[in-house]
Amino acid sequence: MESNPEVAVKFSEVSYQLGQRSLLSDLNLDVQPGETLVLLGRSGCGKTTTLKLINRLLTPTSGNVWVEGKVTTRWNPIQLRRRIGYVIQDIGLFPHFTIARNIGLVPALEGWPAPRIRQRVETLLQLVGLDSEFAQRYPHQLSGGQRQRVGVARALAADPPILLMDEPFGALDPITRSSIQQEFQQLQRTLGKTIIFVTHDIQEAFILASKIGLMQNGRLIVQGTPTEFLRSQEPEAIAFIQCLRALEPLHDLLKENML
């Protein structure tokens, strides 16, 4: 089975069950190259499970997931994963590796020569806004925000065309979070990667998304551009939009007081 290779990631009628429990039902999804799809939904709705189906940490119980025109079960899982950068929800840096070795992991697995890895690590540290002195530190010597930056750098290391990001900025204080989001927006433009980004934060979704997929109870109930999302009549979409509305009086207040 082949599908259009122009589509970076495609789900067709994907369900995932664990025993009797259905975690995902009838997912249909298209992600074009260079697009940023934000999967939005409350915690427990199946966002992480959806990501894991893309890099074949899980395989669908029924239906197919296609990556670059090939069904995931027909990919060699190791090759598939090396083409897909993955920022996991809990970061998962290797505590016994230096930051440099953590970031250079995939290049090392791919057998790059050491000087090239070193150079790449240097570039990536700069890219995610970390001083090069961090290279020789260990993860436990970094703050939560710095670790999350390292997690992003590690996922970008071998320049994968596809990036999966699972609530990568979740554990940050609002100021760091906001600045990292803005930096990431810059990165999106310069890197031109296909990104599937998971969050439960509607504001973050609107900052980063070219397309939003809203999930509820293991189903994808809205899929479209941010503008289309705002027009959705789904109760769950309205509930999320309400969170933005709640901030409106604040925006007015800001305008009045900051001129």
Partner: peptide, 18 residues
């Protein structure tokens, strides 16, 4: 071993032996 660490390793494309 922290499951997150194991999952990150697998997700990066490490073989079981690695």
């Amino acid at each position: 071993v922290d499951p997150a660490v194991r999952e990150a390793g697998r997700g990066m494309g490490m073989t079981d032996w690695q």
